[in-house]
Design a protein around this nucleic acid. Structure first.
Length: 164
DNA sequence: GCCAACGTTGGC
DNA sequence: GCCAACGTTGGC
């Protein structure tokens, strides 16, 4: 099956790309997603090896902060069973779990590609996260968008750093 | 099944 | 803090 690509939002106060890089195995469980569409992407479409744009949201400098990869198939999100968790779901049971998550492994940090930079590029006009009113925390990325962001934008960011 | 009210997201 | 946009809830 062809490799898929995704953009996953995370609030850096909660879990930044550096937090994932510092985690054991550079891997974290992407638990706590409580949106059906995002859940379905993880449960039904994600496969180990899929590419992930790690996006920092709800922070002073929103943008793509790193590259990661899907590191597991989806499995039941343990936080739905934990009464002490803010993600507890009384309607879920072990027999009928409602929420699922994959594991995400950090690959590398990027010099931040700011949201404004993404918006400025006509090549990314159809990027889901740039669509008006988009709030989904997990969105698909096309192979062309992935290449453009991880090669063209990440490269030019690296050159700019040398120039500065 | 409709739809108003409410809650959340997330950039600014 | 504001506000647009969208998802969810619950009465009917």
């Amino acid at each position: 099956m062809a490799k898929n690509y995704w953009l996953m939002k995370s609030e850096p106060d909660e879990c930044s790309i550096d937090d994932v890089l510092a985690a054991p195995g550079r891997t974290v469980a992407w638990s706590g997603v409580r949106n059906y569409q995002a859940r379905n992407f993880m449960r039904d479409e994600m496969r180990p090896g899929d590419g992930v744009l790690f996006y920092h949201s709800s922070c002073p400098q929103p943008g793509v902060a790193g590259i990661a990869r899907v590191a597991s198939r989806a499995y039941p999100d343990i936080t739905q069973f934990d009464r002490t968790s803010e993600y507890f779901d009384a309607a879920a049971s072990a027999e009928r779990p409602r929420w699922f998550n994959v594991d995400v492994q950090a690959v590398r940090r990027l010099r931040l590609i700011p949201l404004a930079t993404l918006r400025a590029r006509p090549e990314l006009a159809d990027l889901a996260i740039l669509r008006r009113g988009n709030r989904l925390s997990i969105t698909p990325v096309t192979a062309a968008q992935w290449k453009f962001i991880t090669i063209v934008l990440a490269e030019s960011a690296s050159k700019n750093r040398k120039a500065v």
